[in-house]
């Protein structure tokens, strides 16, 4: 395949994308493609550039260098005001790591209605849609509550619901399991599993169990803000050296029945390595 050719179901194409905050790099020379329906985990240590990459993918910050295109159209940051803007915002949604950043409406209902209203749906359409979504996600009980007064797990659910309300094709999730209790975590897993093949997921995380369960493909960012690997997540999760180098897992002393041996552990290691 030639580098310029577009795949039939290509959503994103990045070519040499970099981003600098002032003079310090946050994302360096990344190139990859995303196809419709893929579930991709972006894994990397804190500060490796995951959130910045997601913001570039959501066209919130324009790359300092390189090219990003969406459905074959080049995104250039400023021209998002017009037709592409609306179409893009309808198609791509971003769930921020910190739900407080995202939630601002007086009630959960208004929160879910915000997106569809901005995109110009009629009042009645929006109302029906919001009711159905609340019901589907099992959070109808929160409908009239103010988002700031919810627990962090509930906030996260509302944040996710608020972007699903615009029925996007692509969901960018930044550390979605952070601050979730086990039951909410299951809720999220089931939701992502239920939307498999219907939506494209790009998930920034360092929760390796999530990578294993929910993403077929993984992109590893190293601590120098570059791409260390891109491939099937099963293979990447087995590549201990790679994960160690990217500071995603670490060597750790463990004691098993009086025998001390060194092996690696991620924050949510699934204990595969206990051989």
């Amino acid at each position: 395949m030639t580098p310029g050719a577009r795949l039939k179901d290509e959503i994103y194409r990045l070519e040499g994308v970099s981003f600098f905050y002032g003079s310090s790099p946050a994302v360096k020379n990344m190139s990859f493609r995303v196809e419709r329906g893929e579930r991709i985990a972006i894994i990397g240590a804190n500060g490796s550039g995951k959130s910045t990459l997601l913001k570039i993918l959501d066209c919130l910050i324009p790359p300092s260098a390189g090219i990003i295109s969406f459905l074959g159209e080049r995104l250039a940051g400023d021209d998002l005001k017009g037709g592409l803007g609306r179409r893009f915002r309808e198609s791509v949604s971003f769930v921020f790591a910190e739900p407080d950043v995202q939630l601002f409406s007086p009630t959960v209902f208004d929160e879910l209605a915000f997106g569809p209203l901005q995109l110009g749906l009629s009042g009645d359409e929006v109302k029906t849609r919001v009711e159905e979504l609340l019901d589907f996600l099992g959070i109808s009980g929160l409908k009239d509550r103010p988002p700031y007064a919810l627990s962090s797990g509930e906030k996260k659910k509302v944040a996710i619901a608020s972007v699903l309300a615009v029925n996007p094709d692509v969901l960018l999730l930044d550390e979605p399991t952070n601050g979730l209790d086990p039951r909410s975590q299951v809720w999220l897993y089931e939701l992502i599993e239920g939307l498999k093949n219907l939506k494209t997921f790009i998930i920034a995380t360092h929760d390796l169990s999530m990578v294993e369960d929910l993403a077929e493909r993984a992109i590893v960012l190293d601590e120098g803000h570059g791409m260390a690997a891109d491939g099937p997540s099963r293979e990447i999760l087995r590549n201990k050296d790679l994960l160690l180098r990217a500071n995603i897992i670490h060597e750790h002393a463990h004691r098993h029945g009086g025998v001390i041996h060194i092996h690696s552990h991620g924050p949510f290691s699934t204990h595969d390595e206990h051989e």
């Binding site: 913001k55 919130l60 910050i61 971003f94 921020f96 950043v101 995202q102 601002f104 901005q118 615009v166």
Partner: peptide, 12 residues
């Protein structure tokens, strides 16, 4: 971040 989050949700 708040502004970005609003832009992301179609606020113009």
């Amino acid at each position: 971040e708040v502004t970005l989050a609003m832009v992301s949700r179609g606020f113009t």
